[in-house]
Amino acid sequence: MASLTLREVTKAYGATQILKGIDLEVADGEFVVFVGPSGCGKSTLLRAIAGLERVTSGRIAIDGRDVTQERASERGLAMVFQSYALYPHMSVYRNIAFALENLRMPREEIDARVRRAAKMLRLEPYLDRKPGALSGGQRQRVAIGRAVVRDPKIFLFDEPLSNLDAELRVATRKELAALHAEIGGTIIYVTHDQVEAMTLADRIVVLQAGKVEQIGAPLDLYNRPANRFVAGFIGSPKMNFLAAGSAPLAALAAPAGARTFGVRPEHAMIARDGEAADARLSVDIVERLGGESYAYGALQDGAPFCVRAGDALAARRGDSIGVRFDRARLHWFGEDDLALGA
């Protein structure tokens, strides 16, 4: 278990800048999730931490020790690959034991460690099987077992759930959370799925185009997004954005310099009969999820908008409904898209 420090890390392939100066502190035992859209550089950053990519400039330190020039094998980290990268010709046991054999660990010690990991991950019945004979979830657990058995300073996960189906993904997500609670290691986890990020992370690092947009606890990011990108990326359905000064916002006092207004669908309400509405929404689509509903449409000035309603939303396509904004949950962004005030 260890802490990790990144200082001004950049990575370029020729003229293409993939990472544009990343600074990050990860505390011992922390579960940090890198999240961002495809191509934001999150996987490259993870591979740079792993030592699989050399950084163009900047420093990486583990437990205060500079490892920038060290090779992947020297850094003492373990990684779970998106593809799992199980050795297809080796049994589950040999897959898990391989790293320990490379370290020339005594045979009994290897056996004990493999069995402990297998027990923890419920892999004991499959130790003699080849990866090809396992289900997706089992392969996933072997990949984790291969990482756990090494007792690494930091676990690195590269989109480990993306090859699983939806149901298994939810189940494995919970297992991962439980695993972290049990072994308590430092974990860096890459995903493009913000639900994974919100549910698993102690802290989330939101990346876009090779830059850190915001670092913070999940609820901080949700409640106090630092900029318009984070506001839009975290939360589902996405936050509604309106131009400051547009007609539906007439009743609101915009702070000085505001250019964009944002409110999440769950922080807008349908005005009950007689209640004063901030804006009027003409409904295009209503999604009824059972416990809640979402109405999608356009406000009077044509801006697209979504609002969450209770389970009994009666509106239909073509209806016009009044919408109120929760005054405590409004977001304003300035010319530079940074959040104002707050």
């Binding site: 792993a50 090779r71 094998s73 980290l77 990684m79 690959f81 790293a99 490379n102």
Partner: peptide, 24 residues
């Protein structure tokens, strides 16, 4: 990924060749 996984697993280059690449 397999090669990189082996490298993360502390395998020397010769071991990657002999134990991962050759069997595959």
């Amino acid at each position: 990924d397999l090669i990189e996984a082996a490298r993360m697993d502390h395998a020397s280059e010769w071991r990657i060749y002999a134990r991962i690449v050759m069997p595959l």
